[in-house]
Design a protein around this nucleic acid. Structure first.
Lengths: 253, 253
DNA sequence: CGACCTTTTGAACGTATTCAACCGATGTGG
DNA sequence: CCACATCGGTTGAATACGTTCAAAAGGTCG
């Protein structure tokens, strides 16, 4: 398998230059959000053997590309990614934004090649989880198999939520929904719920939300005028959560 | 488990009133599209034990409801379904249309409750696949586990395609894409590629495509005027595939 | 510091929606 | 079995929302 060979140098780098405990799932504070989930200590120790290597990805670099051979799923250890598709016309559709503890590359499982591209929006680090090893391990640890299924199914649920957003919501509802969602995800990782730095450009956010970058910019300005948020470029501070929620509940009123 | 009790009568009905071979995956002409996939004959025989029962669902009836307890995944044997979500405002978002050989209910795996609703758009019949049994069987048959993963991942890929449709395409591109897609799916099931009966209303199709029913209706009329299709209510005949494709390639031209 | 990328804002425009009326199909009860 | 009620579909006209085009200011990085 050529992929294994390709990974070796990275693995050696980890083993030689980093303290061992940093490489284990047991000590990772993202464990519960990640593939190990709620596995017992014993099983987590076994899953660690799946974490084949780490990989650093610089801002602007692709973790994997659409059409590339699928070997592994990636668990984000630090940093921020977007996943996207490009259609025949060259139009990009951002399908998601991902942060620490979340998995990317699941779309490759079905076909042997990645369906989309994952690009780092800031310098990031991921754990490489070779799919063949995950499958093998899942056969031995039923709880892991169940959790893997849950992870896949949750991605489906997330996607359906995005369909709702794109298909049924008005522009302001989309942005409000996005802000509330990403705020929650930051909180779970120990960051501020109200004060954060968006890593994506207005264009990338617009693509995800099915809007043009100018519309996104205008909405940020409008929300600020309403006193709901405070925006300065990519830095967002949520001032009035209820205000954002009122966009969703009230509808047009 | 109350669900098992509820299923019993259906199972008995099958065993008593239907010839046995009709209940097996081995003899099902949708086998390759369905959960068994490309399993060898021996494994297919074992998977048959998972097919716990059949269930008939009349037009307009729900196979399962959002929030309901998740017990089983359903393989469509005959008929046609829509899956949908309803948001806080009561707006419906159709997340997909499903036909013979396709699986619905996967969205329940992650959380123990179904995330959306599946409703029959014509009198239908499904195979009930209790999830606990699938998991058990997947542990014993690696090929089944792999195929289950592939099915879940393919749903993710499909969803990403819908995001592209909703987020990046213009109204006419959306309808053209939909028509070409459903035509392909009919073909794989042995039906005509060019002559079919749409089971969903304009409103349901509009919801799926992120458009209003009037817009869908206008687009059908416009496509007919172009000489690409022939529409009479729910009956559609594709006259010029290249014409439909030109909407996608040409863009505005 | 200078070049480039990102963001903001304005004004004109266009696409899809909304509101409304009408027609046809379907199904139910007298 | 027909009459009528209801639902689904089509079409038109006015409207609204988000886009497009454009210009300028603010950041960022070599």
């Amino acid at each position: 398998m050529p992929a294994v060979i390709a990974l070796k140098p990275v693995m050696q780098q980890r083993m030689s230059s980093q303290p061992k405990f940093e490489g284990t799932c047991s000590s990772c504070n993202l464990r519960e959000l990640c593939l190990p989930g709620l596995l017992c200590a014993e099983d987590v120790a076994r899953v660690e053997n799946v974490v084949y290597a780490r990989r650093r990805v610089k801002r602007g670099e692709a973790l994997f590309n659409a059409g590339g051979e699928f070997n592994a799923v990636y668990a984000i250890r630090s940093g921020f990614f977007k996943t996207s598709l490009v259609d025949g016309e060259g139009r990009e559709q951002v399908t998601g934004f991902f942060m620490g503890g979340e998995l990317v590359g699941l779309d490759g499982i079905g076909s042997g090649t990645y369906n989309g591209t994952a690009m780092a929006l800031e310098d990031s680090e991921v754990c490489v989880l070779p799919y063949a090893l995950i499958e093998e391990m899942a056969r031995e640890i039923p709880a892991l198999a169940r959790h893997l299924h849950a992870v896949l199914a949750r991605e489906i649920v997330r996607d359906h939520g995005v369909m709702m957003l794109l298909g049924s919501m008005r522009a302001e509802e989309r942005l409000a929904t996005f802000l509330l969602n990403i705020s929650k995800r930051f909180v779970r990782r120990g960051y501020s719920a109200s004060d954060f730095h968006l890593r994506m450009t207005r264009e990338e956010l617009g693509s995800f939300l099915g809007l043009k970058l100018e519309t996104v910019s205008r909405l940020f300005s409008a929300f600020q005028k309403e006193g709901w948020i405070d925006v300065q470029q990519k830095h967002v501070r949520i001032v009035d959560v209820a205000g954002l929620q009122s966009v969703l509940n009230g509808g047009k009123s």
